[in-house]
């Protein structure tokens, strides 16, 4: 796609900007839709209806109305806040989660940047989110924000280890960090997906990845950084208007990013589950997005099922359960591939 665009426009810079903006064309409508979906899912799981009025059919325009409201809102900065950091933080958080989209293959024809260390890049760049969250918590000059940010840092840093280790077992099977390459290796019917390879090690790795990715996106049951009942709203307590919306957007973008990585590595990414049936670059986009959205739905489903973990339980799960099991998976997969 990049080559094609270059021949069409004959202007490299323009093509690069275009390539970078394509995922945004998905992330923005997706975030609006996902917020609406989250409300509807939560409502129906509690036998409620959720938004029903705005826009007519099942309140479909509710999030659009919300974003219009957020744009108009006054941008309040606390007097004692560190203005520069306070201003920068939401952008850093969003950049951190959006940068991951650069290496996510949306289809066989489109990947923002076809680098051969894609997976490594994603793991590395998504850690930038922690910096943004810490900035937000620290600069707000508010004890709830700071507590939330500290918790978030502790949580994300410790859950990055099982995440990376779980993904490592896939890398050992594939022998590459190039996500497009990994996708190509899973072509064919769905039993070619890595999820069903080297049972049970990859399956356990998948479970570990799902749990740890939940924690990385600060979603329930790991949402202690923004635990409403204890910390008001955590690190974004002091944000309002568009900056708050940016945090929101970053959270939902992050949700999709981790779902997309899970779908790519374990569920064949843009590959059709039925061999050559319904496959091709455009169908690839469809399969990829539906797999991603399925994981997003599962995240919402879990959120409205499970209560929040305590901080020590959180650390227990990470260090004493997920990490050892991820190591065991690596060893298992490693020996298996050597045989």
């Amino acid at each position: 796609m990049e080559q094609l665009l270059k021949t069409i426009f004959e202007n490299d810079l323009f093509v690069y900007v275009l390539m970078a903006v394509v995922p945004l064309m998905w992330v923005l409508p997706y975030a609006l839709f996902a917020v609406w979906l989250e409300r509807k899912v939560s409502a129906h799981m509690q036998d409620r209806l959720g938004p029903m009025r705005t826009g007519g059919w099942h309140g479909w325009a509710q999030t659009i109305a919300d974003i219009l409201k957020l744009i108009q809102k006054e941008d309040i900065v606390p007097k004692a806040a560190d203005r520069k950091l306070h201003f920068l933080a939401p952008f850093v958080v969003f950049i951190g989660s959006y940068a991951a989209f650069a290496a996510i293959p949306f289809s066989s024809a489109y990947i923002g940047s076809n680098i051969n260390i894609g997976l490594f890049y994603i793991i590395a760049v998504s850690s930038l989110v922690v910096v943004g969250i810490l900035m937000a918590g620290w600069s707000s000059n508010n004890k709830w924000s700071l507590l939330g940010a500290m918790r978030s840092a502790a949580q994300i840093v410790s859950y990055e280890i099982p995440t990376a280790l779980a993904l490592l077992s896939i890398v050992m099977i594939a022998g590459t960090l190039d996500l497009q390459e990994i996708n190509h290796m899973q072509t064919g019917w769905f039993w070619n997906w890595y999820l069903f390879k080297k049972f049970p090690f990859v399956f356990i790795a998948f479970v570990i990845y799902s749990v740890a990715s939940l924690a990385e996106t600060n979603r329930t049951p790991f949402d202690i950084p923004e635990a409403e009942s204890e910390l008001v709203a955590g690190y974004h307590t002091e944000y309002s208007g568009m900056k708050f919306a940016l945090f929101f957007l970053a959270e939902y973008a992050n949700m999709f990013a981790v779902s997309a990585i899970g779908a790519t590595l374990f569920l064949g990414g843009w590959n059709s589950p039925f061999g050559n049936f319904m496959s091709g670059p455009l169908w690839g986009v469809f399969w990829f997005l539906s797999k991603g959205m399925f994981f997003v739905f599962v995240q919402m489903w879990l959120r409205w099922t499970l209560p929040r973990l305590r901080v020590d339980q959180l650390m227990y799960v990470s260090w004493k359960v997920l990490t050892p099991w991820a190591f065991a998976c690596i060893l298992g997969v490693g020996f298996w591939t050597m045989l």
Binding site: A43, H44, Q46, D47, R48, L49, M52, W301, L302, T305
Partner: peptide
């Protein structure tokens, strides 16, 4: 737990408009 919440997803809501 997921089974319970999934079942409730399809139970008609008690809300009255």
């Amino acid at each position: 737990g997921m089974k319970v919440t999934f079942r409730h997803l399809f139970i008609p809501a008690v809300t009255i408009q």
